[in-house]
């Protein structure tokens, strides 16, 4: 009989192996989809760190995703920086925005925190539109194929792109897996479960929460910058409120506060929307129905329910 630790290692390692192997068997269409899903799931994992583990529900994460996306994109289009450096610029911008917004928004809690993050993200979205001369607003701009080269690999090539997306996913996934089982992660969980008690155990709750916001923002920015780089497009829709709702939806569906949940939720939701958009333009109806359904009947999400019923060792 294996202990929980081994089972969990086996399961999470197995998921990575399957994701790696899938590129050899998937048809081109799904191959491209899965590359997208892995980058978006990295965004969801960044969100989950804050929402699922620390218990802070942000409605403004599109701001961090867009900070990475535009930090990377503008660094290339306006300053002619190379892809690798632009990627770093994106991540750093995300961390910086995260630190500023975190320091302000963490003065509030609960519903006020949700509204404040929503408002800041809205201001960010409008700022993208306002500086249309550089961002090209709603229309967005394309990053030329010739510039999408990292370590002399052509990121627009489907095989390279899949591998790059897999690498980003792997890095975030392993980081989250280790983080939530570390002392840091356990303090975040303690804050989620009972903030006052965590404080009265001597933990500097404010600092931990700020660290969680900055880390979550950085991972979201990494996902945003990677997304722009891999798929060659930077546009304002990624800064809109919809892209703040998406990670919430993915994480809720997959299971908040589980390492695997964000991937499962993103995968399910991506294909649900993909399938329904073939039938109707009103594909966001699915998102609405799923949100209401989850709040009513399965607030734990898929992996959360699985943990509650079967695999109690799931991190």
């Amino acid at each position: 009989m294996m202990g929980g630790m081994q089972k969990s290692l086996l399961l999470h390692g197995g998921v990575l192996v399957v994701l790696f192997a899938l590129q050899f068997v998937l048809p081109a269409y799904h191959h491209g989809n899965l590359a997208r899903i892995m980058v978006l799931a990295s965004y969801a994992m960044g969100y989950n760190l804050l929402f699922g583990y620390t218990g802070l529900l942000s409605l403004g994460h599109a701001l961090f995703f867009a900070a990475g996306l535009y930090g990377m994109g503008l660094a290339m289009s306006q300053f002619g920086l190379s892809a690798g450096i632009a990627l770093m610029v994106g991540i750093l911008l995300g961390a910086l925005v995260g630190a500023v917004i975190g320091a302000l928004a963490l003065r509030t809690e609960g519903v006020a925190f949700m509204i404040v993050t929503l408002m800041f993200a809205q201001a960010g979205y409008l700022t993208v539109l306002y500086f249309g001369a550089y961002t090209r607003g709603d229309e967005g701009f394309v990053i030329a194929q010739a510039d999408r080269v990292l370590l002399s690999l052509d990121l627009s090539d489907p095989t390279v792109r899949y591998f790059a997306a897999f690498s980003v996913f792997c890095a975030v996934f392993i980081m989250c897996y280790l983080a939530v089982q570390s002392r840091f992660g356990k303090v975040l969980i303690a804050i989620r479960e009972n903030e006052d008690r965590a404080r009265m155990l001597g933990y500097d709750v404010a600092r931990y929460k700020l660290a969680a916001v900055v880390l979550s923002a950085s991972l979201s920015a990494l996902a945003g910058a990677s997304y722009g780089l891999l798929f060659g497009y930077v546009g304002a829709s990624f800064a809109s409120v919809q892209y703040s709702i998406f990670p919430l939806l993915w994480v809720l569906l997959g299971g908040a506060g589980t390492v695997l949940g964000p991937l499962i939720g993103t995968l399910f939701m991506f294909y649900l929307i993909d399938l329904s958009s073939g039938i109707t333009t009103a594909y966001m109806l699915i998102a609405g129905v799923v949100l209401v359904f989850l709040t009513l009947f399965a607030p734990q999400g898929l992996m959360g329910e699985l943990r509650r019923r079967v695999w109690r060792w799931l991190p």
Binding site: G110, M114, M284, L285, G288, F293, T295, P299
Partner: peptide
């Protein structure tokens, strides 16, 4: 309070898309 916000976001999309 928090779940109500999530649920009403869902309702938002349902009404809009229908």
């Amino acid at each position: 309070p928090e779940r109500t916000i999530v649920a009403t976001i869902g309702i938002l999309y349902i009404l809009q898309q229908v």
